[in-house]
Amino acid sequence: MSITILKPGMMSSLQDLGRWGFQQFGVPIGGAMDKVSATLANIICGNDENEAVIEMTLHGASFMFNESACCAIVGGGCKAFVGDDELPFNRLLWIPAFSTIRTTASAQGCRSYLAVSGGFKVKKILGSASTYTPSGIGGMDGRNLATGDMLSFKREQDFQATSTLKMLPSGIGISHWHTANLVSEMSTVLIVHAIMGPEFDLFNSSSQENIFNSEFSISSQSNRMGYRLEGKKFALEQKTEMVSTAVTTGIVQVTHEGDPIILMADAQTIGGYPRIARICAADIPLLAQTRPGIKIKFKEIKQEESEDRCKELSRSLKKLKSGIGMPS
C-alpha cells in the first residue's frame, strides 16, 4: 500500500516525535512542530504515537491514495477534500483506492498532519524518521517531500477498522467519533505562557517590562528553526558576550539587533544569545499553529505553574487516548 505526492505545497515533510539522544553531537531534536497534533493523528489511526506523519504547512498538499486506506488529518492551516466531499479533521477516515486528497487554505492554524493506519515505511536515521534538511537526514532522503514521491505503508490495512465508519455515497468513510481540536481554540491575540529566561536579569528595565507587557507579531522570516518576533526591541543593561550554552525549543533569545526569536522544533543544540524568556512547553503546539502576521503576547508564569500546565496537557492526551473509538 502506498500514497503518491501530487503536489507538496509550500513545505511538506515526514516527521515523528523527534530525534533524541544525539544533541551532544549537535543533532537537534526536531520532529513535528506541533507534537500534540502529530500524536493525535497517530492515536486516531491506531498507530504508535511516534509513527512518522506528513507535516504540511499552511495551504497543505495533495496526495493520491494508490490503495484504499485509513488515515487521519489533525492540525490547521488547510481544509481537505476528496472530490466535493470535505474531509473532517480529527476523525478516522477511509479513503477509497485512487482517490486524490487535495487541500485549500483555511483561516486558522498553520500546520496539518496526515497519518495513515499502519504508518509510513521510513528509514530511521539516528533513531528517528524526522526530516532535518540542514543536515540532509531523515524522512525522504533528508529532504522535504516532492511531486512524485511514493510513500509505502509499513503494514497492510486492517479492514475491520472501517466497520464503525459512516460511509458517504462517494465511498469515503468517516468515524462517528472525533477528538478535540487544538486549533479551534485560538484567539485573535494568542496568549503564550512564558517564564523568565536564564539571562532575564541581564536585560535593561524597559526590556524586562516589555517582554511580558507588549504585543508581538510573528515575522514572515520564521521557519522550523525559529519564529522571529516583530515589536519592541530588546537590549542588555550592559553589553556582554555570552559563552555558548545549550538551547532548546521554547527559548526566547535576543539577537544583537535586539529582535526576539522563539526557538522551535529544529532549534540548534547550542546558542550564544541571551535568553530573556522561555515558553511553557505545553504552549509550544499552539505556537506551532500560529502563522506569520499573527499577534502574540507573553503571560508571565512561574516554573511550578508551567510544570502544572505540562502535566495537565499529558493528562488530557491520556484521557483522549482512552476515549478513542467511543461515540461522541
Partner: peptide, 20 residues
Amino acid sequence: VEAVPAYGSLTVYFNEHVSA
C-alpha cells in the same frame, strides 16, 4: 534522556518519569 555538554555548563534532558 540525554546530557549536552557546553563550554562551562551541562544540560540534562528528562521525561515525565522524574520531576524537575
